[in-house]
């Protein structure tokens, strides 16, 4: 019997330890964070940030740095996707919505319907990199028609690069014929903003002309994890795919960026060509601020001020995106609290 009692005691001990850990957690977090704060600011309140998973790293870095300065402010940053972010934003659930594209008119209406006005701040640019293996020396530049022939909706079933020759000739693609080599495509899945951007920037115009759907070919290895896509591209000598510029930047030794010809010659993705707009497939990154909350929530104002400060902009580089050439216009929009969509 004593043995059973011991076991019961042990079980109780385990439960107690678990409970103790749980209740102690709150305390521990507080002390850690308070100790990490640079100064004890009087700023309090909470910030809810949601939206694009592409922007999430920048916002998370900024939120963290901001929290270290203002240790009393509660912050949460998540990245379910631009569209999901706007749903929450227009329902008034979040203070800031991150976006890897401009807000759609439909979303503007949804916001207006619930009386939410927004301040649109374009703060960085992300270039989409078209990638192949470093050992692929036969392909160095592709134009939009080339990319359409190899990755567009009419390329279903092309297992070899030169399977696309006929279609490329029809489109007048500049870099055909292609080598006789296996075409291994690894790219983001349809749920991803990176996929949407690629389709919109590269495939849509040609698809419209040809009367096809503006989608990519469906028969490729899709992943939501960009590091997995990099693995796939590096894993085959004759691979093809695309990811955000940041992931190319982190893996330059393993994958090669193919120059892209948007009609004005071949341009390789570099911070300079992306910032100047010479690189043809890049997209702007935004944060949308709830205008009413910017009036009432002091922490929100400080957070956006930090976002547009030099320290905040440094986190754009850290996350692997490219800064704008000029920040005066966006700072002016923020200072004047100008609401609504802007033209670029």
């Amino acid at each position: 019997m004593s043995k059973q009692l011991k076991i019961a005691a042990m079980a109780a001990a385990i439960a107690l330890v678990a409970a103790a850990c749980a209740s102690a957690s709150g305390e521990t977090t507080t002390t850690t964070v308070a100790a990490g704060g640079a100064s004890q600011g009087a700023l309090a309140g909470t910030l809810a940030i949601s939206g694009s998973s592409t922007v999430e790293p920048v916002s998370a870095l900024n939120a963290e740095a901001f929290r270290n300065i203002n240790p009393e402010v509660g912050i949460s940053v998540e990245g379910p996707g631009t569209g999901d972010g706007f749903k929450k934003f227009c329902a008034g659930e979040t203070d800031v919505s991150d976006a890897s594209r401009q807000i759609k008119d439909k979303e503007v209406e949804a916001c207006a319907a619930s009386g939410i006005e927004f301040i649109e701040l374009r703060f960085a640019i992300d270039g989409l990199s078209v990638l192949t293996s470093t050992s692929n020396d036969q392909i160095s530049c592709l134009s939009f028609p080339d990319l359409y022939a190899l990755l567009g909706p009419e390329s279903i079933g092309f297992r070899n690069w030169n399977d696309a020759d006929a279609l490329a000739a029809e489109l007048g693609a500049a870099n055909a014929p292609y080598p006789d080599a296996e075409l291994v495509v690894t790219a983001p899945g349809e749920e991803s903003g990176t996929y949407d951007s690629f389709v919109e920037l590269v495939l849509e115009d040609i698809a419209d002309e040809r009367g096809t759907d503006a989608v990519s070919r469906p028969d490729y290895t899709a992943s939501a994890n960009d590091n997995v896509i990099i693995e796939g591209i590096a894993g085959s000598d004759t691979s093809l795919g695309w990811v955000g510029y940041a992931f190319y930047l982190a893996n330059q030794d393993r994958v090669k960026a193919i120059e892209v010809d948007g009609g004005d010659g071949c341009v390789s993705p570099t911070p300079e060509t992306i910032a100047s707009g010479d690189y043809p497939i890049s997209r702007p990154l935004f944060v949308y601020v709830n205008a009413a909350k910017a009036e009432s929530n002091a922490a929100l104002v400080e957070y956006i001020d930090f976002y547009l400060s030099q320290d905040g902009l440094a986190n754009i580089d850290k996350a692997g995106y490219v800064r704008l050439a000029e920040y005066a216009p966006v700072r002016a929009i923020w200072e004047n609290r100008t609401t609504g969509k802007n033209e670029y």
């Binding site: 309140g45 998370a60 402010v73 912050i75 990245g79």
Partner: peptide, 11 residues
């Protein structure tokens, strides 16, 4: 949460 979060000081 997959991004970053921290509770408010008075939470």
């Amino acid at each position: 949460a997959t991004g970053y979060f921290a509770p408010a000081g008075d939470a």
